[in-house]
Computed example of a mutant assay.
Amino acid sequence: MTSRRDFLKEAATGAVILGTHSSLGLTHALDPHTEQEKSRVIIARDAALHSSDGKLDEKRVGDLLDRAIATYTGRKRPVDAWKHIVLEGGAKEKVIGLKTNGLGGKGISTHAVLAYAIAERLQQAGVKPGNILIWDRNARDLEACGLTINTDPSRVRCFGSDSVGFEDAVEKWGSSHARFSRILTRECAMVINLPILKDHSMSGVTFAMKNMYGVVERPQELHAGGCNPGVADLNAFPVIQQKIKLTIGDAMTSVYEGGPGFRPEHLWQPNALIVGEDRVAIDQIAWGILEKKRAEVGLKTLEAVGRPPRYIATAADSTHALGVNDPRHIKVIEV
């Protein structure tokens, strides 16, 4: 059995295989001698993503996004990759949502440049501007990302759940009770998940799965037990499984301690995008990335400080079956 130490080493060097069914049909068999369909987690990096003054280079972000998506889909031209994503996601003439995360405040939120770059590429793939909706819990969180609120249906829209409200009905799954944003339930046919990688004072890691806390009315009710089983239960709701098709994780800037808020003393720049469909596998890899950084600066592991992200294993168990966390079934490709 692979030890956690071995896993962290493998996660850092890109030596694991992810086996899971691809809802978008984007992934394909990596080994023709195996029967199991393989999907992948792509980590695209650019060490020069930030300028000397700490600002992101917009062109380099776009190039990094293109490289990540082309690698993930196997399409040489990024525009062909996006056309495939839109077509397989069943959203060619429908609304595509981009779910950001601005809860941490300015400086540690999903970067606007990434959201706008994705919106631009969706338009190049034939999606009408008004059918692209950048959204989060509320206007404050969107503005923390550097985004501008806009409801003009002729342009890329941007507004929060606070402006349209939540469903009246309370949905139940496992220990979770939730009222979902009407943006998720009524507006979007497909959602691309844009979390930002952070340490979390309760759950240990917040990234792909925990970003779903921003689609319900009262996420504070899901934090007991280090967000376990809250995160796993929430991600098991059918509406999330059906509509959250792809994750393009923002790991361009991160906090490795003291999160989820902005902690300049613990800020670091992984300069990466993490792309995949299996949010469980993505979070497992993200955990390894955070642990590697913590070790580099002399911090104890999340396990040692009493806040390992146990919800990841819960999400992978037979009850939830949301993805895989076993390093033997994850393939990380670094580009």
Rank of each mutant, 00 (worst) to 15 (best):
G102I: 05
N235Y: 07
W173I: 15
G230E: 06
G261Q: 13
V215H: 01
S201L: 03
S23N: 10
R307N: 14
N131T: 00
G62K: 11
Q36G: 07
Y116F: 13
F166G: 08
P260F: 00
L142H: 08
R75K: 15
D136R: 00
E171L: 11
E221G: 14
G105S: 08
D199A: 12
L65Q: 11
A315I: 10
A224N: 09
V86I: 14
L8P: 01
S318M: 10
K293S: 07
A236K: 07
Y256Q: 01
I183T: 12
G107C: 01
S163A: 11
H266C: 11
R182A: 08
V16T: 14
K92M: 09
Q269C: 13
K210Y: 02
G105Y: 08
D168I: 13
P153M: 01
G90F: 14
S3A: 08
E303Y: 12
E187Y: 14
G165M: 13
D278I: 04
I312C: 01
I330H: 04
F180Y: 12
Q284M: 14
E171C: 09
G25K: 03
K198I: 05
G14S: 11
V127Y: 00
I285T: 10
G105I: 08
P270M: 08
I43W: 00
K293G: 07
N228I: 03
V280Y: 03
F159Q: 05
S181A: 05
G107P: 02
Y213F: 14
L49K: 03
A119V: 05
N228L: 03
D233L: 04
L30D: 12
A189M: 02
R40V: 12
N228R: 03
D152M: 06
